[in-house]
Design a protein around this nucleic acid. Structure first.
Length: 649
RNA sequence: GCGCCUGUAGCUCAGCUGGAUAGAGCAACGGAUUUCUAAUCCGUCGGUCGGGGGUUCGAAUCCCUCCAGGCGUACCA
């Protein structure tokens, strides 16, 4: 039973005579932060006392009188300034735990009013191989889908792949000019990726070469500005603004120097490579020409459309193999191209309604409070991802009847989503929950975005391979009792689990530092720890030759006479609540935390309470039931995160 | 310039719709195994929650301000 939710509902009833707005007070009933304060604590008497100008302890006393929890808790106690401490009755906790051990859904009730969620995640660019930057979106989005679905919602996962943008023009241009037919026959996707990188690099080169003189001209100006700022600050040491100006000038100068150095380095790498240099010289307008290929594709050019039709399925197939490794399937993968036919209509509508105006040649929506425009059509007539995203909203709400649309996307795009949602609301989509489920960057040990030493982004494929290889070493050290195929299987589970868990266990808002050492640590708060706990439970059930189905249906009672058993039982009953917490603000880290605590409770129990040798039989049966329920919750919980388990490891 | 985010133990991070002595993991140190997997458990050490003001009976949490860092900011997505 979800005791927290039940107790809150009881508290709500008790509060009705004391306040008209019980909601915020009900929330103040939470898990105790310390076992000596009982299992739950209600902190609402103090603020309520302030409102009514009474003594907090008197309010607490009055509240307790109204609070009907005698069937659930020992008599409530008032402590300190007016905390109400609640401790569950052991008989009730035991009875509810017994019920949970027999429940297929492990005490998780389906939500009263299911919603239709569209979860937009992963969304790689088909032109480029997936890299570490796609990891978080993929992993967080998948976890949210599974959790919301388990709670009883209708969930549609959508891979909104980038298959229509500027990058496609680069591929087409590269294919027409630089392709290696043999390589394309052998491995089309790698060849296309190579062509993309090449065109991108050459086009960058020309842009940098064109801009370098301007930047170099700025250098003396920036230096002079710094000197002037320093002089002014020296003349007025107390002037804070002057000091600030010095810092700012220093920053700007250093940024400028950095930009020039980085540009020079990039140009140099081309200049020194005669083959690349020859190509660069032969294609001086490559950037513009690639953009033109995109425009032709969008305009329906037969040849480009044919190439697009040829490339996209190959790319999608390659992506598919990646998702298979994660065990992810999408309900749909409607890429940008799918919305193409609707874009002109969207812009027309915005114009007709007077919401979009032409500014500096581009068609824009201006949202109050934002200086930057939301550009729905560029000066050259091309549509942008803003247009596509509006069309997507229209489809998701009008056709798919979404109650909520989640976008699991990098936090750097927050401004885009703010404008997108504001615009959607303006055109009438004001009943749907739109939510940018944002997340931070994966950093390297140097606190810069995670890259290889040479500065390339790290491919996801090789990252996963490396994780599994590293896991294999650990498995070999620890599991001499397993056969070769078993070890290989466990290595995959441990390696993949490590990557997924590390990502999910951080608060999604924060950046995190990627570290192999921490991730694959065999101790502490890791996937491995939880997987191991699961395997240990399985070991007990296997060794005892326990028929789980029979065990569950035999009608055994649960006995909770030791602290370890009681703590574990309480923890098992929290599963439902933990999942609910995830759904409130789309935070999977609350589930990783719960699972770690559960595995931890089990480990203590395991240490203190013998199971197979327990006597009498009633105690043995009770402990076996706790083991079985623990295993099921750990397995189900990890499964909701996209992480697998093995019975032995 | 404007906007968003971040700053918590030596390290990596939770906690942030205000509540009791600020929590984990790692690292360090000390214990536990004739008993179901020691990839384990128990304990110790460790923090003026970036600084300063304010609101409050009560602030890591809310407000103001300063400092430090990251990101975004008109035709890439």
């Amino acid at each position: 039973m979800d005791f927290l939710t039940e107790l809150r509902s009881r508290l709500r009833t008790a509060l009705t005579s004391l306040t008209d707005s019980p909601d915020s007070y009900v929330e103040m009933l939470k898990l105790s932060q310390d076992g000596k304060f009982g299992d739950f604590q209600a902190n609402c008497a103090m603020p309520l006392a302030k409102q009514t100008k009474k003594a907090p302890r008197d309010v607490a006393t009055a509240l307790i009188e109204k609070l009907d929890v005698a069937d659930l808790c020992d008599p409530p106690e008032i402590a300190g300034p007016g905390f109400i401490n609640l401790r569950l009755r052991s008989d009730r906790l035991a009875a509810e735990t017994a019920k949970l051990t027999k429940d297929d859904k492990l005490g998780v009730a389906e939500v009263d009013s299911p919603k239709t969620y569209i979860v937009d995640f992963s969304s790689p660019n088909v032109a480029k191989p997936m890299h570490v930057g796609h990891l978080r979106s993929t992993v967080i989005g998948n976890a949210l889908c599974r959790i919301l679905r388990f709670l009883g919602h209708r969930v549609l996962s959508d891979n909104h792949v980038g298959d229509w943008g500027t990058q496609f023009g680069m591929i087409i241009y590269g294919y027409k000019n630089f392709r290696d037919d043999a390589a394309y026959q052998r491995d089309p996707v790698s060849e296309l990726a190579r062509l993309y990188r090449l065109v991108n690099q050459l086009s960058d080169y020309h842009e940098l070469v064109a801009n370098l003189p301007k930047q170099r001209e700025k250098l003396p100006l920036s230096e002079a500005a710094l000197v002037a700022a320093r002089q002014s600050a020296a003349a007025n040491p107390a002037d804070k603004d002057a000091l600030r100006l010095v810092k700012k000038s220093e920053q700007e100068l250093s940024d400028l120097k950095g930009a020039i150095a980085s540009a020079e380095k990039k140009c140099q790498s081309i200049d020194e490579n005669s083959a690349l240099k020859t190509l660069a010289d032969a294609h001086p307008k490559i950037g513009e020409l690639a953009r033109r290929e995109t425009a032709k594709l969008h305009a329906g050019d037969v040849e480009n459309k044919r190439l697009w039709d040829e490339f996209v399925p190959k790319c999608m197939l390659a992506l598919e193999s990646m998702y298979q490794r994660f065990g992810i399937t999408f309900d749909m993968a409607l890429g940008e191209s799918w919305y193409n036919p609707m874009l002109a209509g969207i812009v027309d509508e915005l114009k007709n309604q007077g919401m979009a105006v032409v500014s500096e040649g581009a068609t824009c929506v201006f949202v109050e409070g934002n200086d930057a425009p939301f550009i729905v059509q560029k000066a050259d007539g091309a549509f942008t991802y803003a247009t596509t995203d509006l069309a997507t909203i229209r489809y998701r709400v009008d056709t798919l009847h979404a109650d909520a649309c989640l976008y699991v996307v990098d936090s750097r795009q927050s401004e885009h989503f703010q404008l997108l949602f504001a615009t959607a609301k303006k055109i009438g989509y004001d009943k749907t929950e739109f939510r940018h489920v944002s997340f931070g960057t994966v950093l390297g040990e140097d606190r810069r975005p995670y890259k290889t030493r040479s500065g390339d982004t790290i491919g996801l494929e090789s990252l996963l391979d490396e994780a599994i290889q590293n896991a294999r070493k650990i498995v070999d050290e620890n599991s001499s009792h397993l056969s070769e195929p078993e070890r290989a299987n466990v290595s995959i589970l441990v390696g993949m689990g490590a990557i997924i868990y590390v990502d999910l266990h951080h608060n999604r808002d924060s950046d995190y530092v990627f570290s192999w050492e921490k991730m694959l640590a065999t101790t502490g708060d890791t996937a491995t720890y939880i997987q191991y706990a699961y395997a240990r439970v399985c070991g007990i059930l296997r060794k005892g030759d326990v028929d789980a189905k029979q065990l569950r249906s035999a009608g055994h009672s649960i006995l909770l006479d030791t602290p370890a058993e009681r703590a574990l039982a309480l923890q098992l009953n929290r599963f439902s609540n933990a999942l609910g917490d995830v759904a409130v603000d789309y935070r999977p880290n609350l589930l990783t935390q719960y699972l770690f605590e559960t595995a931890n409770s089990f480990a203590s129990f395991y240490n203190e309470c013998p199971v197979l040798n327990a006597e009498p039989d009633a105690l043995r049966a009770s402990r076996l039931l706790l083991c079985d329920a623990t295993a099921r919750i750990l397995k189900q919980g990890l499964n909701l995160l996209g992480i697998g388990v093995a019975d032995q490891m």
